[in-house]
Amino acid sequence: MPGLRLRRPATDVVELAALSGRAGDLERIAAGRGTTLPAFGHALLKADRAAVCVRPARWLLLGPPAAPGASAAAWADACAGRGVAVDLSSGIVALDLAGPAVREVLARGCRLDLDPSIFPPGRAAATVMAQVSVILVATRAGVLLLTPSTTARHFGEWLEHTAAPFGIERAAALPFLSGDPHE
């Protein structure tokens, strides 16, 4: 059994940011659209979407691939005057890591304490790994990584190089998070 299973789910990404003092409004608007916005440092993961909060009053909303910009435009309309929605589907790449060696591999680049007692499933954090910005979301099977697209290939190469001694399996790009529903 390989230490690391790596796949790259295709995702639509919208960054939602509240204007001053409007975070509560966005939470209500999001709830009305069937999305719960998590507290800072947390992520809510469902089979087909996720919401991640690693910046105050800002959320990354991940969902299945859609027409470029369409969901950002819909969120922008819904939040007009209270928040800003920007499409980042092309700017962020998701890497889904699972397997027994996930934490061992990540410890070779990640400065954060990923011990399950500190970073259990549902926690999220922004940090830097291999000199690249990375957002980590703890899942039950491992970790979901979100990283800027222009350095994603570099980061992927680093990850594969680092994981090689543990054995790595590249799984097909399955639909978004289908392997790890949390709710």
Partner: peptide
């Protein structure tokens, strides 16, 4: 205050 204790390298 947001992220907790982090290494200098992140700042």
């Amino acid at each position: 205050p947001w992220c907790g204790v982090r290494d200098e390298a992140e700042f």
